[in-house]
Design a protein around this nucleic acid. Structure first.
Lengths: 211, 211, 211, 211
DNA sequence: AATGAATGAGAGTTCATTCAT
DNA sequence: CATGAATGAACTCTCATTCAT
């Protein structure tokens, strides 16, 4: 005999998941707009026009939903990096430069689309929690390690200088994105500026790392 | 008609100015330690052992004193840069490199001495206020403009590449300090790391900008 | 006109009654474990693995089911007393003492088996409601009246002192159980203590009431 | 030179102490009326017509002020006992009986004056906190130990039975007050009832413990 | 001029109860 | 008839700010 048909309204897990998603989205929007600390649970509820307690059906606390918002964001960054072909694909410096270019394009695209998210991640995280700060720093470490892997391959393949301190260079390359990101937050950074910026950095760094 | 002569003991303006200074200093220490948001007016008052209301005799709000604290901090950064000999002094690339090195030494020294201040400026400012964010970004602009002036001189003097996009390079140079600053905030960045970092960056960038 | 014959499956009254019973039992367990105030409707529902709303199909409020839980408990106490042979059965003081002993044994047994229930009845009831307090006090009155009936019989039968204030003595006898009950709630009252306690009380009171 | 005169409004510790006292009193009244759990901080504030935050200037939490309310109450009980002449003063059974009588008079007086307090202590304490329950049980232990000391003296002095289990009897004597206290909470226990009760208990117990 | 007691809006969170499905 | 998602009032507690002294 199969499971007896359960009485009543089925738990509709899709609905619950959808609510969670909607709440995370609303929280993301509110956090991005006002900042995590200034934002209130009420702002999130009002954005969805739900009651005060609904939030707490789905998340234990304000702090918890922040983790989900951050998860969401980190996944996007990691995807932006992982979408690129692996280091081994590049046989020449120009191919390598193309890889770097595409990764930075994707990061820029995220920053352009979601400046509030960047602010939340880069600037507010450290005010909130050691755990959160640590997660963010781990993301940066991951990005550094990824770029370092591309550099290491370049050294082995012979198109980058043998004496590169690849870890330092990778760190610097990552952070070199920051002035552009910060100018995006100001709203004074259009596609032309971005083009100019990427080109300038490559011209600057290119000779420094090329063999 | 001039102000009528005031009766009684004149309000001691020097004393009031001193109080203000002391309050700003205390606020500086408290904000650096706990962060602006987590800090309370009470913390500031207690540090000076004055009553709760005294604060409001000298400042209109918590937000107002933050401006003065930030003034204080920005001055230090600007002084760190201004202390260096003007661009015109450097006649060779090596002299220029020495200038850059000394500026970055001073910035590192501030960051090492006052990590809380860095956190406040870099990470918390944007959570608080658009006006404050704007001020911070202006500081970055000033730093960029300053470094760009050194670069422009180098181009004119002939020891830097003629085709440098000096503004972009200056931006990037400034932000290249950031990974180091962030690692300082984590407490995982000793003097050796700093030496290695500065050296690595210079090796990387040197060839890129030198003529 | 009689009720028109209902269409469809008749509401299964037996099933509904069973649900009620199960809910009361679950509430009993939950209230005994966590206390009425700390307990939530959710705890009751979860214990039966039913939905949140089911509770409200059978009871109007948290307060209402408490009445039923208390009913249940009071019945057990009354049964503990009623199980004893009626006063008329005892012809001698020793027989009377045996009756008292057996009644107190039964009350102790309930307390030992269900300390949470005792806590609910004795200590929490009065925090909740005047109506509930009143019901509890009526139980005590009933117990007093029952014991007084045993005493009255003993006076008439001649084995107890003629000048006993039977109501006062009955009251006192009931409450003399309390120190033991309270020590049970503390967990510092084993069977030996109970034996010693009952024996001590009987030695104390025996001479006071015996003719 | 003496301490320089401090500027500003002096801390006026008397005022603060008075506020504390007033708050404890208000809390006592509110807790006695509605019970600790049902009472809100707002009730206390409104009773004194002060703002919401004033409470928290003087007490860290709702739980903390309860401790002070309970302190207050326990002191009264201990004073009621300590006011009696020490055990050694009684040379005869009648003098001993007088001592017991006066102690119980004082306890009754407290219960009559403050039924809500009794309810709070006896009935609600155990719902709140293990720490509070423990404190209450310690009070009961103290009362038991005190009465046991009177009994022990009586045994040594020869006017009480040599084979008394003094601890058990003391426990029972203490709790024998309870029916009266509970009836006071119902408001159905006037001075006559009390007289009758005390007399009845003494008649009952007197023969049981007297030599 | 300085004090610190007082304020009260607003925060995050809980939970008995309702009701669309 | 059962369900469980949704509700929202009420809770305890915080803290920037005010003001009588």
């Amino acid at each position: 005999m199969p499971d007896p048909p359960r009485r009543g309204r089925p738990p509709d897990e899709k609905l619950a998941a959808e609510r969670r998603r909607a709440l995370i989205e609303a929280a993301y929007a509110v956090f991005a707009e006002k900042g995590y600390i200034a934002a209130g649970i009420a702002d999130i509820d009002e954005r969805l026009d739900v009651g005060r307690g609904t939030f707490y059906r789905h998340f234990q606390s304000k702090r918890e939903i922040l983790d989900h918002v951050v998860d969401h964001a980190l996944e996007r960054f990691l995807a932006a990096i992982a979408a690129e072909a692996p280091p081994g694909e590049a046989g020449t410096f120009d191919e390598f430069a193309g890889q770097m270019r595409r990764i930075s394009d994707r990061v820029f695209a995220i920053a352009a689309a979601e400046p509030g998210l960047m602010r939340l991640l880069i600037f507010e995280a450290t005010s909130i929690d050691d755990a959160l700060t640590e997660r963010l720093l781990e993301l940066l470490d991951t990005m550094t390690a990824t770029v370092a892997a591309y550099l290491d391959h370049g050294v082995r393949a012979g198109y980058l200088r043998a004496d590169l301190d690849t870890h330092v260079v990778a760190d610097a390359l990552n952070y070199v994105l920051m002035p552009a990101v910060m100018q995006m937050l100001r709203g004074t950074f259009g596609p032309d500026d971005r083009e100019r910026y990427q080109h300038g950095v490559m011209a600057l760094v290119g000779d420094g790392i090329r063999r």
